[in-house]
């Protein structure tokens, strides 16, 4: 029982990481109908900016955090302008390739600028964790879980209760209709990219103290987050969260009770089963083409 509780906590912890990155996927997908293969690199770049500010320059943690987020705003905007926007009228394939090109570019530019050493970034809290009975709770994982809950709440409020959120939603559902209604579609898409770059950045900064800061950190998480997105359904942010958590838990328990070497396979096996038997994801999204 102790072990099950501990595994559950670890699974939820790593699952929250997947969920955070998955939210970025979903947002961009809903607004533009493309999968952003550079989403993981957003996380990586943000973590490196954090290292530069907080470790190398010795700035306070909160200030570094704000600087890194500001950096992500710039990167999200540039990404939209250079990688997505010129291709907006083409099919999803060129866009996918373009985002793949961007991910290669971001990863290797970071490598060229910062070098290959993995870096340490300390967590937000000084205490590494707390022991509750038989279960040890890592403070950084607690923070990640907390932030995930907060972001879900924020997301709900933002999209359902604010005008700009509603405009964003309208854009993601039907761009033509939105522009007829006088919504500045281009600006909305720009906003979506910035917001999802921010989300990716927050995820990267939060997980850095656990997984360390390395060039590869983004791509490994992103692939899992992508799987989480499918499990949850591409159409829904809540689905991404559930998908992420489910994936984390499946992986952790699969590793504990079935096989460690194949643990990455469970995610994909579940994924394939989902795709075959419930392609609309947990929360449902129409897959079939309109006649």
């Amino acid at each position: 029982m102790d072990i099950i509780l501990q595994l559950l906590f670890q699974g939820i912890g790593i699952g929250s990481v997947y969920a955070l990155v998955a939210m970025g996927f979903v947002l961009i997908f809903r607004a533009t109908n493309v999968v952003n293969f550079a989403q993981g690199e957003f996380s990586m770049v943000a973590a490196y900016m954090m290292v530069v500010c907080a470790v190398d320059l010795g700035l306070p943690y909160w200030l570094s955090f704000l600087i890194a987020l500001a950096g992500m705003v710039v990167i999200g905007a540039l990404f939209n302008v250079c990688v997505y926007y010129p291709l907006r009228h083409r099919t999803y394939l060129p866009v996918i390739i373009s985002t793949i090109g961007a991910s290669i570019f971001l990863a290797n530019t970071t490598l060229a600028l910062y070098g290959p050493q993995p870096q340490v970034l300390s967590g937000w809290f000084d205490t590494p964790g707390i022991q509750i009975g038989p279960v040890y709770l890592d403070s950084q994982y607690l923070l990640i879980i907390g932030v995930t809950i907060l972001l879900v709440a924020f997301q709900y409020w933002f999209f359902e209760k604010t005008l700009i959120g509603k405009k964003l939603q309208a854009t993601s559902q039907d761009k033509e209709m939105a522009s007829l209604l006088g919504i500045p579609v281009a600006a909305m898409i720009m906003l979506t990219f910035i917001y999802s770059a921010l989300l990716g950045g927050v995820a990267g900064i939060l997980v850095a103290p656990i997984l360390f800061v390395s060039i590869q950190m983004g791509s490994t998480i992103a692939l899992k987050a992508f799987a989480a997105t499918i499990i949850g359904g591409f159409g829904d942010v809540a689905g991404a969260i559930i998908g992420g958590l489910a994936l984390g838990i499946i992986e952790t328990f699969g590793a504990a009770y079935i096989s460690v070497p194949y643990k990455d396979g469970f995610a994909f096996l579940v994924l394939v089963l989902f795709l075959i038997f419930r392609p609309q994801g947990i929360f449902g999204e129409r897959v079939a083409e309109k006649a």
């Binding site: 595994l7 670890q10 790593i14 899992k224 952790t252 590793a255 460690v260 070497p261 643990k263």
Partner: peptide, 11 residues
């Protein structure tokens, strides 16, 4: 055994 580039070793 564990696969390289694992993110979690708790199990």
């Amino acid at each position: 055994g564990y696969p390289n580039q694992s993110q979690d070793f708790s199990s």
